[in-house]
Design a protein around this nucleic acid. Sequence first.
DNA 1: AGAAGTGGTTAGCATAGCTAACTATATTTC
DNA 2: GAAATATAGTTAGCTATGCTAACCACTTCT
Lengths: 151, 151
Amino acid sequence: MAKRKIKISPKDDAYCIGDLLHSAAIHLLRKVRAQDRNAGIGPAQLSALSVLVFGGQRSLKELAEAEEVRPPTMSRIVVGLERMRLVRRKATDDKRRMLLEATARGVKILQEGRRRRVKMLVAALQELSEDELREAAAAAEFMRKLIGRLS
Amino acid sequence: MAKRKIKISPKDDAYCIGDLLHSAAIHLLRKVRAQDRNAGIGPAQLSALSVLVFGGQRSLKELAEAEEVRPPTMSRIVVGLERMRLVRRKATDDKRRMLLEATARGVKILQEGRRRRVKMLVAALQELSEDELREAAAAAEFMRKLIGRLS
DNA sequence: AGAAGTGGTTAGCATAGCTAACTATATTTC
DNA sequence: GAAATATAGTTAGCTATGCTAACCACTTCT
């Protein structure tokens, strides 16, 4: 999938690293997605729900922006979540807007779903030594920082 | 999206790290996907094509396994790639099997697509210092290793 | 030769992404 | 205050990607 060059020196190593990270993200998600098969909740729904659970209530537009999708896409995702009673709408003073909020059931389902998804990842991580785990934490932290710089 | 705990000590930090990596992968791909909008080639097609370009010719089943999707899914992806003349079928002695091979056009399109996709990533990486870039390389390499251990 | 296995496709379903066009409400401007 | 403009969400309709079940065409095994 990706070139394997990792030595550091000139600028265009950035291309190789970018490529590796991109490829890694694709394959990581392919692996964890396998756990979603019979779960009754899709990856986009799970991800949107997690924004509401960890980040609190917000409007559809804000949710769409947080998830980097267009409003119609998020509208449909929310319909699904609502039908499953994982999310609730709340009216606001501005009658065009609504606030979306996770229900108690939503919080529970999210935790189960995430646990299921990352189970394989966690299992792999638990086999690592202390040092390797430190390396893992550094990698995760780096990814988070990098993504923050992306937009 | 994710809890931010990163201190190292007991075993269940593995859960936090797993969660962070999972979340990072989702958001990294969301960002880069934005570049695909008007490109005429989807992410799954691009990824499958890259296997053929970097890994050489192989059968549909092998390609499906490499991409972690089921054969019917890959069958359809290949139909699309073929229609665009990015991939060619070759008959084999075993008349059930076929070998898939990227065309010259396929190689070109792949390079453009990947470059487009990772452009944003590369731009962010190029702003890093030497030390940070080393950190980036370590993170990328770690991700690759981790994924290798997953299945 | 017949049974069982293997490689790929077809059919049919669901999710998830998009744009364009619409409705309803707010806000701005004249 | 009325008209124009802007904003929030939805609807409609397209595409791509996932899946399973069922099928066809070959190979291989007995």
